[in-house]
């Protein structure tokens, strides 16, 4: 069985006023099914870019990104979009909830995009909200939720369609310590329960230590890939 996600000698640079700025240089690595990988590194080291490449919302200049063995670069825009829709759940640092929708409506957005039957989708959304401790809050406008609650809603949205790969870009970066801890625990637990592989970007060594594996990026290169030990999340 192929790994859920694989990078093969991936390079990516951006054009700036000062010329080409290499962000990623020859990254290779694999994420097996059900595993949690934390990506760490300094600001500008290419963590978010790597995550975007994994999600197929950015494309490498060279090398390959494989999702369940399929090279994303060889897919058309539409097929890449469908691959993302079917196989990937995304969690963002700034939640990106739609402000005019309720919590439950936000969770249901991927079902709307995919055209899933509304009944089962709604039942799944409610079950996920209950799982993350927001059982009675589905009808609340998202603007009335706290930051931690918003990120839990975003987590439910990412999990709604049972993705094989969950990508989280600094999911606790916009939260206070306590809320961040709760969200991270939930992220890891629920991903495990759902059987999704998890790749998350974080600055925090403690949060990275909770992963099965930690990838550290430095100046666009994968400096070290080591086992994280899946330690419990500690503040």
């Amino acid at each position: 069985m192929p790994p859920v996600l694989a990078f093969r000698d991936v390079a990516r640079s951006y054009r700036t006023a000062g010329g080409e700025l290499p962000v990623l240089r020859g990254i290779s690595g694999e994420v097996p099914a059900g595993r949690a990988v934390a990506i760490t590194g300094r600001s500008g080291s290419g963590k978010s870019t790597l995550l975007h490449l994994a999600a197929g919302i950015d494309a490498p200049d060279s090398g390959e990104v494989l999702l369940l063995g399929r090279s994303l670069g060889r897919l058309s825009d539409r097929d890449r979009t469908l691959a993302r829709r079917e196989g990937i759940g995304l969690v963002f640092q700034f939640f990106h909830l739609l402000p005019h929708l309720t919590a439950e409506e936000n969770v249901l957005v991927p079902a709307l995009v995919a055209g899933d039957p509304p009944g089962p989708a709604r039942a799944r959304a409610r079950s996920l909200l209950a799982r993350v401790g927001l059982g009675g809050r589905g009808g609340d406008p998202v603007q009335k939720l706290s930051g931690g609650e918003m990120q839990r809603v975003a987590l439910c949205r990412a999990l709604l369609r049972r993705p094989t790969l969950l990508l989280a870009d600094e999911p606790t970066g916009n939260l206070d310590e306590a809320s961040g801890q709760v969200v991270m625990e939930l992220l890891l637990e629920v991903a495990r329960e759902e059987g999704s592989a998890l790749v998350y970007v974080t600055h925090s060594r403690e949060l990275a230590a909770a992963a099965d594996e930690v990838w550290t990026l430095h100046a666009g290169r994968l400096e070290a890939a080591r086992s994280g030990g899946a330690a419990p999340v500690a503040g």
Binding site: D77, R78, T81, L82, R85, E86
Partner: peptide, 9 residues
């Protein structure tokens, strides 16, 4: 966001 969540063009 819609695009990120899998909406096609």
């Amino acid at each position: 966001l819609y695009r990120a969540l899998g909406a096609t063009r």
